[in-house]
Design a protein around this nucleic acid. Sequence first.
DNA 1: AAAGCATTCAACCGCAATGCG
DNA 2: GCGCATTGCGGTTGAATGCTT
Length: 310
Amino acid sequence: MDGNKDRMFDSGTLHGGEDDSDLRRGPWTVEEDIILINYIANHGDGRWNSLARCAGLKRTGKSCRLRWLNYLRPDVRRGNITLEEQLLILELHSRWGNRWSKIAQQLPGRTDNEIKNYWRTRVQKHAKQLKCDVNSKQFKDTMRYLWMPRLVERIQAAAVSSVAASAVVDGSGSYGSVTPTPPALMMNGGSDFVSTPQVTPSYTSENSSSGGGGGSSDGTQVSSVSELTDCYNNFSCNFPAGYEQDAGAGAASMQSPAGGLFFNEGTLDFQAMQQSSCEWMAGDGGVDTSESLWNGAGADYFWFLQQQLN
DNA sequence: AAAGCATTCAACCGCAATGCG
DNA sequence: GCGCATTGCGGTTGAATGCTT
């Protein structure tokens, strides 16, 4: 359908002569959230225009749908993007580009909006710091050969430390319950990744409790962190021989955040790139070690909502 | 303390695709 | 096949928040 109809849809003029002044815009209130949650609990979702009307919400159907899918849906995961999720996003974006919803399908509980925001605020920021285009070969190579392996290292380190911790606690070395995980990344011919839809890490770098002993009795393959990271370690081993020279030769200058060149007169300054990589993942734009909004105030909000619904 | 700047992310916009009568 | 209603998606905006000076 064309834009005119959609503007009508958005503006609410489809709603029997309502005008824009009847429609609320901007942030949702707690009351609106409760109304929407209650209505969907009783009647289900879909048919968003009539849902908005019947629920008595002065919102467009589109707004209701977005609020539900991106925020109120019970299976939406909130909080920091985990290391594993970051890895997946980088990999899947390299393969699919800005197909946010497709990428989001591989990260259960994450919305396309969240992934898109992550990409724009974190990844694109670092491309900007490197003074290269996010779609450039240099940036993609930096992601693939430095940042992604570095993420793997961190995932592995987190897994090892959590295994050690759990071994201390229960003395068994078992990893606790197996949780749903996003697709494992597997090597394809040694040079590409393919995803398999069996697994989903629901652990975070901070709270990871599953480390290595995946597998299930029902035949479903459950990938563990170590399996996941092994794939990447294998990949790291397959780091193209002479890549440094290849990447440097003929490549445009690539600057480190500090202003130094990664590619300088045909020589790739790997140390500088790795430094940048470390800064990204350990520092400002990477893994937030602080409690996230949703681990804190957001959780309170949902508790409050729950109280209102009870 | 407060002003200015930077960052984040919920929400909106526009368009394309799909479903249905 | 056509027109309308609805859904889905990607891009963009702007308010809220955090950080720096």
